[in-house]
Design a binder for these strands. Structure first.
Lengths: 148, 148
DNA sequence: CCGTATCCTTCTAGATACTG
DNA sequence: CAGTATCTAGAAGGATACGG
């Protein structure tokens, strides 16, 4: 597939820019990426209370709000188990999982940015805002590709 | 290169999420993507006044503000020609150009999203917010790869 | 031409208290 | 457990006027 968005056609430029903005809007929100990454890592539906623990620093209201928006945008699926006490699980949809390459690409760019700026990349804890006392060196390359 | 961020190691999860958030923060701001896409398309430095025309709907204050942030993040370079009347040009840095694949990936995801939701993708003009009366079908695949 | 300074409005995050 | 409702502070966007 060769859709070259760097093409100079002005009509298309607006088109590409719009498509990208649209996509980014879906990902904007302080906690969405963290939520998506956590759901990716889980590889299985996650209960609300569990998610609340894993998305460090988030509060109930924000978590629910962001989940709702992600659900509305078709990125996460919400499953309610009608029982007492209530049980609700969240998982990525197919569309949500399709974000993988984009996230990967952004991560790679983040690495490049760090390499180019040379210095300490201001690694900050997403939750507290505290600087994490760890250099931004990529983890070992010898990870299992994706443990089943 | 095989950095699998979908790996389950909790320490790494936070790491990936943080890296991605960091990257996204750089791209957030109503006009940044449009600016970047325009600078990409131009393939040459663009004067401020010219950029103001191409980023449809932006006002001076916002354009300057976003450009400043992009400059601070090492994505655009600003060149001042000391003359009267003043002349200032903006261009993408190497780091800025490196965003290409990420933007491309996001665009592809936007397409997938539209295909999956089936319906009209609410193509909205970035400037006015008006719905653009055009279907979101990818432009012809037979474009020149990148006209020199 | 390119930018700064002010002022105003809207949007977002978040703290807190309450409910089926 | 998994929400809803309310309120507040601050950030972001934007209109407008002025300056080198």
């Amino acid at each position: 597939m060769k859709r070259d968005w760097r093409n100079g056609n002005p009509e298309q430029q607006l088109f590409w820019a719009t498509a990208t903005c649209e996509t980014l809007r879906v990902l904007e929100g302080k906690w969405k990426i963290v939520i998506i990454v956590q759901l990716f890592a889980a590889k299985a539906p996650v209960r609300f209370s569990e998610l609340e623990k894993r998305v460090v620093g988030v509060n109930q209201k924000m978590l629910i709000q962001q989940l709702k928006e992600l659900e509305k945008d078709g990125i996460v699926a919400r499953t309610v188990y009608p029982q007492v006490p209530p049980k609700v699980e969240y998982a990525l949809t197919e569309l949500g999982r399709a974000l993988g390459p984009s996230i990967e690409s952004l991560i790679n760019w983040a690495f490049l940015k760090c390499e180019m700026s040379g210095g300490t990349p201001q690694q900050v804890d997403a939750a507290t805002g505290a600087v994490v006392g760890r250099q931004l060196s990529p983890p070992t390359e010898t990870l299992e590709p994706r443990p089943k």
